[in-house]
């Protein structure tokens, strides 16, 4: 079995399984801790608050933006760029349609891919250099934050290295890093991609119950 066959075959299957099971285990584990039923007479709906909380925190408040604009721009740039690349890069769609869904969808043209990647990279770099150069960030960051950032960076970098699609080795390197990323994901802070809705939702539900219109 060649290297590319290994990283796209059995290794990928194992990594994906660990990712799916691990992420599900962790999310379910958090939910299963449970919370006591609130018996104070409600003023509003907790369920509606759950969804509202999730939506509301997508939009930063103007009053804070003057101090946090770079983080907002960097954060959104990186995340939207990453999702754009992950879901609409031509080789990704080909891979997903061949391996998972059986059907494909429209893909980014090359220039679109390049611009999306540039936005994603710029965002990620801004987020990380902020982490190392702000005393607040230096104080609260731990190894998990750095590993998560760097592993994602290397996945993205190896992906853009393979853009010429002329060397199997480069594609295999990218896949290898993707597999490592998938395995690391459920155990580290990358899990915020799944836990954010619980956190926003729980606060939203509490506020919703109190009839707060935030």
């Amino acid at each position: 079995m060649s290297f590319i066959e290994f990283v796209e075959g059995p290794f990928y299957t194992v990594a994906m399984t660990i990712f799916l099971l691990g992420a599900a285990w962790r999310v379910i584990g958090i939910i299963r801790i449970g919370r006591k039923k609130d018996i104070s007479p409600p003023k509003g709906s907790a369920a509606a608050g759950f969804f509202k909380g999730n939506l509301r925190h997508f939009f930063p408040r103007g009053i804070f933006a003057r101090r946090t604009w770079l983080h907002i721009v960097g954060g959104y740039g990186f995340h939207l760029g990453l999702f754009g690349l992950m879901l609409f890069a031509a080789p990704h769609v080909a891979f997903i349609s061949e391996r998972i869904t059986g059907f494909g969808w429209p893909t980014l043209p090359r220039w679109g891919f390049v611009i999306t990647a540039e936005i994603a990279f710029a965002g990620l770099i801004v987020l990380w250099v902020r982490r190392i150069s702000d005393p607040v960030m230096r104080l609260i960051s731990d190894w998990d934050d750095h590993i998560g950032t760097w592993i994602t960076f290397f996945v993205m970098l190896s992906g853009c290295f393979a853009m010429q699609e002329s060397h199997v080795f480069l594609r295999a390197t990218h896949m290898l890093l993707v597999n490592i990323w998938l395995i690391y994901f459920p155990f580290g802070r990358l899990m915020h991609a799944f836990t954010f809705f619980l956190s926003r939702g729980n606060t939203g539900a509490t506020y919703g119950r109190k009839g707060m219109n935030l």
Partner: peptide, 21 residues
Amino acid sequence: NSIMTSAALQGHNLFGPLFVV
């Protein structure tokens, strides 16, 4: 060399415009 140059060229072209910014 061929592999590294291919990778480096793609990377270089992608990051180049970011340097301008």
